[in-house]
């Protein structure tokens, strides 16, 4: 059944009140670029849609102290073209610029990308490398938690879109000696789901020749985007040189759990490409860190 009501609340309180009143029959809609397709295919049903894109609290990209706060309804286009994001979180601008097509990027939002919980979401993989946390509001109050725990399976997010609203995402802006980069493997340059996405954030020592910290986020080679923690650990304190990186990336390939897939390729190919894309991302992130 198609939705019978389309409501556009003008405050967060009003939006939450509508959700509560409908007791699970109303659902939050942001850009709608994924949700409308799911509704058309009846993979998701709702009696009422609550459009949150007019809420001022959910707009804007701001630098607060050393943290960047992005409203959940910021679009991929806004992320990709934001000078603040390009400068202080390049990995996220690069990921956002790869989503779908210009038309999709003009409507789709970062909050929607998170709640839709696809295992390779182009903004979620970068946000995991940035160690982002999210802010979720319900009529019971506000909760903040790491983004990493939100996606629990393909399409499954712990944010309940019939009762809660993801309002913002927040992470520490990259500083001196830090650099980041995103890489994507897909069949075409546009309108193509990723075969593999990698997002890397590196922190180098003052000399620029040793890794202080490396964060490696990868999708979709497991049910959810994940951090290659063993490889990260292996690179901590390691020299910035090809042999150490190659050894660590062997660990990352073992941490990935790809399955042979007719669209995304064989298990062996995908495991190999985890190493290739991460290596390229690390190299670009190191360059960025040395130039920062």
């Amino acid at each position: 059944m198609k939705w019978e009501e389309y409501l556009v609340p003008s405050s967060l309180e009003e939006a939450l009140a509508i959700l509560k009143e409908h007791q699970g029959q109303a659902r939050v809609i942001a850009g709608g670029t994924d949700l409308i397709i799911q509704l058309k295919k009846k993979e998701v049903t709702a009696r009422c849609l609550v459009d949150i894109t007019n809420l001022d609290e959910l707009k804007g990209i701001e630098l607060e102290d050393d943290f960047i706060r992005i409203g959940a309804c910021v679009t991929h286009q806004e992320l990709a073209s934001s000078s603040l994001i390009r400068e202080k979180a390049a990995v996220l601008a690069e990921g956002a610029s790869q989503v779908g097509s210009p038309q999709i990027r003009n409507m789709g939002t970062v909050g929607g990308n998170i709640v839709n919980a696809q295992p390779a979401a182009d903004t979620v993989v970068p946000l995991m490398a940035l160690e982002a946390e999210v802010e979720v509001v319900s009529s019971d109050g506000i909760r903040r938690e790491p983004l990493g725990g939100l996606c629990v399976g393909p399409g499954q997010c712990t944010v309940d879109a019939t009762a809660e609203i993801l309002t913002a995402v927040r992470f520490r802006a990259l500083g001196p000696n830090q650099g980041s980069a995103f890489a994507r493997l897909a069949k075409r340059k546009a309108l193509s789901l990723p075969i593999l996405n990698t997002a890397v954030v590196v922190t180098l020592n003052d000399g620029g020749d040793t890794f202080q910290e490396v964060r490696l986020a990868v999708g979709p080679v497991a049910p959810t985007p994940f951090r290659a923690r063993k490889a990260e650990e292996a690179l901590r304190g390691a020299a910035v040189e090809a042999q150490a990186i190659a050894a660590a990336l062997e660990l990352a390939a073992q941490e990935a759990q790809p399955r042979t897939n007719p669209v995304r390729g064989s298990e062996e190919y995908r495991r190999e490409m985890v190493k290739v894309l991460l290596r390229r991302s690390i190299e670009r992130a190191v360059q960025a860190a040395r130039g920062s």
């Binding site: 809609i29 709608g32 409308i36 849609l49 459009d51 894109t53 286009q77 003009n106 409507m107």
Partner: peptide, 16 residues
Amino acid sequence: LLDGRPVNSCLVPALK
């Protein structure tokens, strides 16, 4: 074009 930006009108609820 919605406010000057290209969008897919098949995915945009009219009330947007």
